[in-house]
Amino acid sequence: MAPLTRRQCLAGLAVTSLGLRGDPAHAARPPRIACLEWTSAEMVISLGIGPVAVADTKGYRDWVAGPALPAFCLDLGSRGEPNLELLLELNPDLITGAYGYGLDEAPFKRIAPLHTVPFYDGSEAPYRQAENETRKLGAQLGREAEAQRLVQETAATIAHVNAQFSGRTEQPLAVISMFDDRHVRVYGKGSLFQDVLDRLSLTNAWTAPTKSWGFSMVGIEQLVAIGEARLISLDPIPPHVKIRIDQSSLWANLPCVKAGNVRTIPPIWPFGGLAAAARFATLLARA
């Protein structure tokens, strides 16, 4: 079957035009939501609503992966410069975004109400903030029950994984993302991953200072500081970087690499919400 054109998608979305809670005629129908970035998109999908459009859908599928975007979801262009013309055509009931992207809110507010998720604003630990923001978004969308269920299911998933680790001697671990063959992003204090590690009673081998978003950007040689700790590397790793890493003597001589303690796990959005937290715990248990 040939893929749908943008015009066909827009026409189909128009036929199923939906309203937010407060419109009795559409109370049972989910709203039409456009997401300017991936954190709020993950949250919306986790509450059982498929967004009509998300910025950089390919990036979402590569870097976030789960929960999956619906097939009908359109691409809004880059997260730094979403397509205003397409947003106008879509006429969404709600636009969602997240703190930290530096976008001027005014043009979006002229199209539809704007809901901003203030993750990593320094007011709360990321996991606790994810719980609170999930409840807030659920209340706005008339999905309070779904939001509370997500909060409870995420806590239950983490508790289940914690029980799997209980009684086992787990060596410290560090979590990284690779972007080139000389530098890595290492997640530590202030990150969602650190909050999950704490709930799993696991020790983060990376104790160096982090940025406000909960990571350090360091040269690969600085990973010598974690010794033979387990190293958890997040996909995706760009193919050309993987080739260079495999050929790098600097990488090969790291104690954790020489000890065979490197594991690669599927993508998890480090700046995500509860779905990312549960996904991280689950994938760690399999690593």
Rank of each mutant, 00 (worst) to 15 (best):
A159Q: 13
G48E: 02
A106Q: 14
E131K: 15
S123W: 00
V117Y: 06
L76D: 05
G59Y: 08
P30D: 15
G50N: 12
D104K: 14
E105I: 09
L94M: 11
C73Y: 03
T57P: 02
A27D: 11
A55P: 06
G66S: 13
R149D: 12
P51R: 03
P51F: 01
V52M: 09
V44A: 07
Y120H: 11
T116Q: 08
H115G: 05
G102Q: 07
P30I: 04
A34M: 08
A34N: 05
P107H: 11
L141H: 03
E146N: 12
E144C: 07
A156I: 07
A28F: 09
L76Q: 04
V117N: 03
A55S: 15
Q164C: 12
R149Q: 15
K136F: 05
G142A: 12
A68S: 10
F72D: 12
L74M: 15
E81H: 13
Y120A: 03
V117H: 03
E124F: 11
E85I: 05
T57V: 13
A155T: 08
A34C: 15
L137A: 05
P82T: 05
S78I: 00
L114S: 07
E42N: 04
E153H: 09
T39W: 00
L141W: 03
A55Q: 05
V161G: 00
D104E: 14
H160S: 15
A163W: 06
G102A: 06
P31Y: 10
N132F: 00
V64I: 12
R32D: 15
L141F: 03
L84C: 04
I33S: 07
Q140K: 15
V52Y: 09
L88D: 12
Q164F: 13
R61H: 09
S46V: 03
L87Q: 04
S78T: 14
P113W: 08
A68H: 08
I158D: 01
A53V: 06
E153C: 04
T116F: 00
A155V: 05
D56V: 06
R128T: 14
V44L: 10
A71L: 13
Y127I: 09
L69P: 01
